[in-house]
Design a protein around this nucleic acid. Structure first.
Lengths: 346, 346
DNA sequence: CTGAAAGCGCTTACAG
DNA sequence: CTGAAAGCGCTTACAG
């Protein structure tokens, strides 16, 4: 890297002092520096392509305009959609991000602290508890898609129970009376989404939904859906708590010769992978509002940074709207019963 | 953030000078500082949890131990696998990363330069040309999954032609003689992968593969595969140039009542989404060696940084190994012909 | 063996 | 209207 120009270089070229350069370039020249010299400074700066060294600036101002992001993958998957939204909001607010895998490399939290990032964002791949690490106490931080049980920082989370509720209601509204749920075995998100479905069924006086608890892979979804759909009294509508499960369920339905939505209806919850919505048919999706969550997260954090006060932690919850697709239809006449076709690899 | 201890604080507590603190903590105390004072310094540092301010360090050393990463999404998808591998290697080498969406926010390249990152990594979501931006000339930089036609920097790319070749050979070895290709409409990767397939077919004296050029979504794969599989002389083996196309193809096969691999064999190229391999059945995959590429990229860059010389640009190409799945089998007897079932939604 | 000084590149009071 | 000085927090020659 050829050495970059400093304020001194500009001053020399313009024939003024270093402080004059600073004044002019920061718009504080009014009534301090003569018009002629102002122009000289601007010219010199342009000519040398001068831009202040942000490191020096940071040392002086004690601000880096940089945020630390603590995240981690869940089943090899980073919370990409959420991170993207966070990045976008941070950029707009003038911050750059340093991301760290806090599970794999917890020590890097200290590296971030040493570098004097202005604040922290914790972005979880799945709703979970997250106890703020000890070195972060007193440091501005906001939790996204996770929350601190000890209330060490503000948090923003999707309302997963309501999301499950919406999914189930979508099926009810189309006339389904027997619901099945393909639910992840782990994690708060699975738990709450499932809870939402159950709540709706109970409130509507429906029989208990049939639930299969399973892993979170496509294969798991496939196997779980077969179990559900091959049962004696197979449900007519399925809620899948995770996108990859939905994908597996669709494959399973096909293997069983069941058409979606004619033979079985599907509603999926969103994990930000953009996997369920662009399926064939596009699956009805309860969407996590990543953009909204990220925008509020940055508002909250930036406010703390600019006012230089650590606000008392708040917990914000976000509704998840339903994005209609083509995977829900009225159930076939219940009375007629239904035969599971024996097509494809049985 | 409660004010963090400085070297001065440690010196005061230990009753020595600031320079003594620096010497001791940097292991240069030997024969300079008395044993007693050394201990005093260490104690004080521990007690105050002193850790040097990396910003001040950077101002002095002109190194930030930070790398700028230029990347961008392709069809809303970031090159996650590659970025993850790059992150992991960078961490191991002691570097933190600042990532920037260079398409959406090209101005942030300057922000990175102002912050004096030590070097740059450009990580492309799909093989492509990438002309190094003007402000980066002379700055240590390495291109990953892309290359500069003007040779402005070293680059590391997967051998996409050979990847296509491997995919096709996989089918040939199982006895397939009629190949179909579902190929993305855009991008060098599609082009080269397709070229690899064609080359194999030609070399083996097979008929020209039937090619459908299409978009890159799951729906595109679905539609394209139907076109291919419903044709008069449908191919017995399919190569899909992208994971999402593969997914669509599998759905299409199912809708047509074709079992994989009994009725049609499938091989996919890898885009790092981990979508094709965990399918049901797991699809045979030609894998991009992200870990290897990332490791070499960092070696190349770190070498430049530590030797402080900008090496003359090199172009490295990486072979993509085949990861066998369960989606390839010998074709049905050609002579018998085959009927496309009319199951599912036609 | 130890402390005072210089300097990395900035900006902001503070004299003149 | 302008320049010299201090200070952000470090480390490394350099005197004593």
């Amino acid at each position: 890297m050829t050495r970059r120009a400093t304020a001194q270089d500009v001053a020399d070229l313009a024939g003024v002092s270093r402080s004059a350069v600073s004044l002019v370039l920061n718009g504080r020249a009014a009534g301090n520096i003569s018009r002629v010299k102002q122009e000289a400074v601007r010219d010199a700066a342009r000519q040398l392509r001068y831009t202040p060294n942000a490191v020096a600036l940071s040392l002086r101002s004690k601000r880096t305009a940089t945020l630390g992001v603590l995240t981690w993958p869940d089943r090899r998957q980073m919370p990409l959609a959420l991170l993207g939204a966070v990045y976008s909001e941070a950029s707009s607010a003038g911050y750059l991000l340093m991301m760290v895998d806090v599970l794999e490399r917890p020590g890097q939290v200290d590296a971030l602290l040493d570098r004097r990032v202005d604040g922290f964002l914790v972005v979880a791949p799945e709703l979970t508890e997250f106890v703020l690490p000890e070195p972060l106490t007193g440091v501005p931080a906001v939790l996204v898609n996770c929350f601190d049980p000890h209330l060490g920082a503000s948090s923003l989370v999707p309302d997963e129970v309501a999301a499950g509720t919406s999914a189930a209601e979508r099926l009810l509204e189309s006339g389904h009376r027997s619901l099945g749920v393909l639910a992840g075995r782990e994690g708060l998100a699975s738990e709450r989404r499932l809870q939402g479905v159950r709540r709706v069924a109970a409130a509507a006086g429906l029989p208990e939904p049939v639930v299969v608890r399973t892993g979170h892979t496509i294969e798991d979804g496939y196997a779980g859906a077969r179990e559900l759909l091959e049962a004696e009294l197979a449900p007519s509508g399925l809620v899948c708590t995770h996108e990859r499960l939905t994908l597996g369920a669709l494959l399973a339905a096909h293997d069983l010769g069941l058409a979606v939505p004619e033979d079985v209806s599907l509603v999926s919850l969103d994990d930000g992978e953009q996997l369920a919505a662009p399926l064939v048919p596009p699956v009805d999706l309860v969407v996590r509002p990543d953009g909204l969550i990220a925008a509020h997260a940055l508002d909250l954090l930036v406010e703390q940074l600019e006012l230089d006060l650590v606000a008392s932690p708040r917990q914000l919850s976000f509704a998840c709207p339903l994005k209609p697709g083509g995977s829900v239809a009225a159930p076939r006449q219940q009375a007629l019963g239904r035969q599971v076709g024996q097509v494809g690899q049985a």
